[in-house]
Amino acid sequence: MTAIVTNPPLSERKGLPAKRRRRRGVYPIVRVIALILIVLLFILPLVWMVIASLKNNVDIYDASKTIIFTPTLENYANVLSRNNYFVFIFNSFWVAFASTVLSLILGVPAAYAMSRFTMHKSALVVLLARIIPGVSLLVPWYFIFANLRLVGGFGVLILSHMFVALPLIVYIMISFFDSLPLELEEQAQVDGLTPIGAFLRTTLPLSVPGIATASILSFIFSWNNFMFALVLSGAHTKTLPVAIFNFVSYASIDWGSLMAASVVVTVPIMIIALFTQKYIVSGLTAGATKG
């Protein structure tokens, strides 16, 4: 049997290219508008924060001085010198650095084992640990660490941040190791290396983009974490997000200093994300095309 092909009416054939041309003309406009809205949604709060950090409290409440005002650095002087925020910056950096390094030391070999030996149940447990909200563990943690007299020290902060950083690193690195061919390690073992040696000399150097991604995301989480540090830190181990609350009192809020402190917290992470974005993208998409 031969199929009968019927041509559409001439009006429909003429109208189809016109519709396509209209769609091609509309879609770029929609994309540009959507992109502008998304950029404004994320940029405007940051711009307002920076502008407010250069105003005194009177100018912040004055709507006529939203754009035109006399800038001042008094808020930054108040934050960095009078309130000794360099100590809080060091505390945040030390907790973020230590929790990230320890999580990498434990998480990278664990992710390698789960990937190469197809430990799907263990990977599921790691994923569940990543999903569990941290606030549900704060009360048990505080009870245990308080009885051990560890509350207020750096150790308890580092351990609490590792609870989130370690599953994150394992989850990212499992996908990255899955994307690396097993033949490279087999060839290294044929050349005389042990399985551990093949991992250290072949697989680990190739996994640098994934390690960089996991490290950056873990560091950013720890730097921005507020809840764990609020409950478990002490007067000498207070981190930046908790220290910002020094400008919030029962009767009033020092908005200028609060915005200046927020800029101090935000700018380092924005710089890190800006210069390491290629590692983040390459690491997160490493296992996307596998198979």
Score class of each variant (00 low, 15 high):
T2P: 10
V5F: 10
T6E: 15
N7G: 08
G15F: 14
R24K: 11
V26A: 07
V26I: 12
L35T: 15
I36Y: 06
L37S: 07
L41E: 03
W48C: 09
A52Q: 09
N56T: 13
V58L: 10
D62H: 07
I68L: 15
I68F: 14
P71E: 06
T72K: 11
Y76R: 03
V79P: 06
V79H: 08
V79R: 09
L80I: 08
S81C: 04
V87M: 08
F93R: 05
V101N: 07
I105Q: 12
A111I: 10
K121T: 13
L124F: 13
V125R: 06
R130S: 08
L148Q: 06
G153Y: 01
G155S: 01
L157Q: 03
F163L: 07
V164E: 00
I169D: 03
Y171W: 15
M173Q: 02
P181G: 00
A188M: 11
Q189E: 14
D191I: 01
L193G: 01
L193N: 05
T194K: 08
P195M: 09
L204F: 11
L206Y: 04
V208L: 15
P209S: 10
I216W: 03
L217D: 08
S222A: 14
L230H: 08
H236G: 12
T239R: 12
P241H: 09
I244S: 06
V248W: 01
V248Q: 06
Y250Q: 12
D254P: 05
G256V: 01
M259P: 03
I269G: 02
I269N: 03
I272E: 11
